[in-house]
Write a protein that binds this DNA or RNA. Structure first.
Lengths: 133, 133
DNA sequence: CCTATTGTACCATAATATGTGGTACACTAT
DNA sequence: ATAGTGTACCACATATTATGGTACAATAGG
């Protein structure tokens, strides 16, 4: 599979599945139109409950990352420019995370420039390296 | 008060209090050594339960943001360079958030440079503007 | 010494979120 | 017809969150 799940983390399992797929897509492990394992398949592969997997798939569909076709299966959605409300919600979320980063950075004495450098480096390392596959 | 709390958000109230104080400190509304309202005071002011406030204070103490003195009160901790483990934990958290930002940015078609600009702008606006006081 | 205030530790209770396991149904493709 | 899809239920257990109440040790100020 393209990612792992740790039930002991405070992050809910279904959320970890959501994040895992997003990451797999951004990293190119899964591409537009690709078929995703069925709910029961993935549940068996990762020893999860089908309801948990379904919850993740449904959230990914709400976020327009997946496209679910009744009776056929689940696929990676074709990329479409997000609606304005979608974009606004995502941007707000991004800004909020940036503020959190700034705050946490304050406590490890990272300046704005330090954070910028760390950001660039993080993206670079992360795009090539890959944590778990 | 220096921040507000919204019980309807999915974020736990005590976590909102934690974030609120961190924000207030970064923005300079509260300074090192300042005395923080007592658990019961803040609970009354914000119509929360004293246990909820205490939970927030205790977490802030664990993060070395507050210093709690038995029988005297709670104060903003003097800034000390974090221990290595502290620093590592916070840095890991920051990197994780940066990855999340990169992923979300992908879905609103923000390039790495776009995100950098947004980051700079967010900090600038946020430092001066201030959301709720 | 007395009293008020501090944080803290409990207890009970309720509500919510999460996760598992099972069953069933409509839809689709073969 | 049959198998595989997502989905909608149900029941159940567990953990987290939040509230309300009580009590206790430590501190500070009369």
């Amino acid at each position: 599979m393209w990612f792992r799940v740790n039930p002991r983390l405070p992050t809910p399992i279904y959320q970890q599945v959501v994040d895992g797929f997003k990451e797999a897509i951004v990293k190119g492990f899964v591409k537009q139109g690709d078929r995703i394992p069925s709910v029961r398949e993935l549940a068996t592969l990762m020893t999860l409950n089908h309801n948990t997997v379904a919850k993740a798939y449904q959230q990914l569909e709400r976020e327009h990352v997946f496209e679910i076709i009744q009776g056929r299966g689940t696929f990676v959605a074709e990329f479409k420019p997000p609606s304005d409300s979608d974009r606004d919600r995502r941007l707000a979320k991004i800004v909020e995370m940036m503020q959190q980063i700034y705050i946490e950075g304050h406590y490890v004495q990272l300046s704005e420039d330090d954070l910028m450098s760390l950001f660039r480096e993080t993206i670079r390392k992360w795009e090539t390296g890959g944590k778990d596959v």
